[in-house]
Structures are given as C-alpha cells and as structure tokens.
C-alpha cells in the first residue's frame, strides 16, 4: 500500500466508511495534504463506491475546499468598499497581471496563493494587503509589487509516492 492509499484507508475507517460523512472525510484529506489532490479524490470515490463526479461537485461547491496546492505564501488583498475606493481594484489587477494569478488561485511557480476578500476590518489603513499574516497599510500598486517581489521562493522537492 502506498502512503496515499494508506491515508485514504485511515480517513475512511475513521468514519466507518459511511458515505454520508463524505464532507468530513474530504476535510481530513485536505488537512493532511494541504489540498485535495485529484488522485486522492479518485481513490476516495472508488473506496466509497461513489461517483467521482459527486466528490468533484462537493469540492467545487464549498469555497473552503481547494483542488490545487497552496502557495508558499498567503497574500490577501482587501477589496471591500473602502479599500476598493482607495484603489484596491487597481492593485488587484496589477497583481493578477504581474504574477499570472487569479483571485483564489496560486501563482504558477507556487510562490503565493492570492485571495481577494471583502473587508478585513481595518478601513482606516485602506488599502490593506495581508502577506503571511502581516498587515501592510496604505498600499499602492507599486508598493504591493515591492513587497511581493521580495517574497522568498523556496525550492521544494515534489513529494514522491513512496512504497511501504
């Protein structure tokens, strides 16, 4: 059994193989893997004797599930009313252009996951950008670029499917 197979087995038995517990199972899988890998979803579907289409439907319905790995850093840009009026829209466009990333997605090199949210409750500091939990206030497209370009990109090895 591969590590991947074992993980599915553990998760499924945690819930007695009950299909009705599909969502908690998927949450566990995401907690373990950081996201929902396609192969793992297929495995889980097969193990539960449930169509993959149903798992995909669930995975795409809930915003908390992700089908792609998270980037090494987390970038959250507030596009709430105040930040928007103060130019968050332009910052968002600039980030998307420059890093080829869509809101909710991850940059192709895995540097960061970009999230646009609707108010972080710090309107006096607008526009606000949060990078790895650190708040940057009164950002402009240029200052945002400066921060993001400075993010370190670690070279991580892809996890290998190891046989046991």
């Amino acid at each position: 059994m591969t590590v991947q197979e074992k993980l599915i087995e553990t998760i499924v038995s945690r819930y007695d193989g009950e299909v009705g517990m599909l969502i908690p199972m998927m949450q566990d899988l995401q907690a373990e893997s950081g996201y929902l890998p396609v192969d793992q979803l297929r495995r889980l579907a097969a193990r539960l004797d449930t169509p993959v289409s149903r798992l995909y439907a669930v995975a795409t319905f809930y915003a908390s599930f992700r089908l792609a790995p998270k980037g090494q850093h987390e970038v959250t840009l507030c596009v709430g009313t105040v930040c928007y009026l103060k130019g968050a829209g332009r910052i968002s466009e600039r980030i998307q252009e420059e890093f080829q990333v869509e809101a909710g997605g991850t940059t192709p090199d895995g540097l960061f996951t970009f999230q646009a949210v609707n108010c972080v409750g710090a309107c006096a500091l607008a526009p606000v950008m949060i990078v790895d939990g650190q708040y940057h206030d009164k950002v402009t497209p240029d200052s945002a670029m400066e921060v993001l370009r400075g993010l370190p990109l670690e070279q991580r090895q892809e996890q290998q499917e190891t046989k046991t």
């Binding site: 169509p51 289409s53 149903r54 995909y56």
Partner: peptide, 30 residues
C-alpha cells in the same frame, strides 16, 4: 445517474460558476 447509473457528469461550482461538468473537467472515465 438515474437511468444509466453512471453519474459521469454532475453540477460543479455554484452561483454564476455553476455548470454541468465531468469530474475535474477532464474526459470522464465513468
């Protein structure tokens, strides 16, 4: 689903993104 029992296609996403798709938007094995 009901007639063929295949469930090769299903709704995915929600709101304006809701669409009938195959799993992972790839050719469906089912």
């Amino acid at each position: 689903d009901e007639v063929l029992g295949r469930s090769a296609i299903a709704f995915s996403g929600r709101g304006p993104d809701r669409a009938v798709t195959t799993p992972f938007r790839q050719p469906a094995e089912d």
